[in-house]
């Protein structure tokens, strides 16, 4: 009841009214995609992060990759990749995963510089991620540090969407079968050699297109059915 009356867009307008001028206010000024419209026509921003660890409260963002999609088509002109300079040294175990060393991280820009660009791209779009809570958590923490408030954004999660689709089709779900690479293989998507935030954001966007193509026959559906609880 509360969710219906005080939906995401209602909360956005309330926050907008109180927001100080700046990137966050500009972000909040754009209405969220309407929850009742066909999900396929809604604008999405697929986003992936590389971080120094798993905890948004203590770990930091190392890079951000993102690409926009709408109507089942990914627009590569919107593809962006930011290296972010962490305030502390990159822990060794995360460097081995991402191949982001202290040297490369030092070429990154401060998060305060990058975040306005991310918010501008995200304005009016649904944030799409594979296990999107990680992205939301880190972006929210960054916003709290920079602007004194968290990130209000509609979320869609390919991991959850695909889990439900596979369950509906009665296909077995084993540990690891919901990983991005495994799901892509299942849908006949190419294997990418590189591993960075942009390639993963693109990989997620393509997986979402595959998901949409495979539920195409079931016709249009309102966006709200595809959103995660905020």
């Amino acid at each position: 009841m509360w969710e219906r009356l005080f939906g995401l867009d209602f909360r956005r307008r309330r926050l907008l009214a109180r927001a100080a001028p700046g990137p966050m206010r500009d972000y909040l000024a754009a209405p969220f995609p309407a929850r009742g419209d066909d999900y396929l026509e809604a604008p999405f921003l697929a986003l992936d992060l590389e971080t120094t660890g798993l905890d948004p409260r203590t770990d930091e963002i190392l890079s951000i990759g993102m690409v926009a999609l709408r109507g089942g088509t990914i627009d590569l002109a919107s593809a962006r990749h930011f290296l972010v300079a962490p305030t502390r040294a990159v822990p060794e175990n995360s460097a081995t995963i991402h191949h982001i060393t202290d040297d490369r991280a030092a070429q990154g820009r401060p998060i305060a510089e990058v975040m306005p660009e991310v918010l501008a791209a995200l304005a009016g779009r649904v944030l799409l991620g594979h296990h999107v809570r990680t992205e939301r958590g880190f972006l929210g923490a960054a916003c709290r540090r920079l602007y004194g408030q968290g990130l209000l954004v509609p979320l869609a999660d390919t991991e959850m969407l695909l889990r439900r689709q596979l369950e509906r089709r009665g296909e077995p779900i084993t540990s690891g079968s919901l990983r991005l690479a495994a799901l892509r293989e299942r849908f006949g998507l190419p294997r990418y050699k590189a591993h960075d935030a942009l390639v993963d954001a693109l990989a997620t966007a393509e997986l979402f297109c595959a998901f949409a193509a495979h539920r195409e026959l079931r016709g249009p559906a309102p966006l709200r059915l595809f959103l995660e609880a905020p």
Partner: peptide, 30 residues
């Protein structure tokens, strides 16, 4: 690459896919 769009076609769909935004040639990635 920045000029391209990406699209997924399910097996059995019509090819080339009907386009809503602009006119395109199609390169098969897979």
């Amino acid at each position: 690459p920045a000029a391209l769009g990406v699209r997924y076609l399910r097996r059995g769909s019509a090819f080339p896919p009907p386009q809503t935004a602009g006119r395109f040639a199609c390169l098969l990635r897979s």
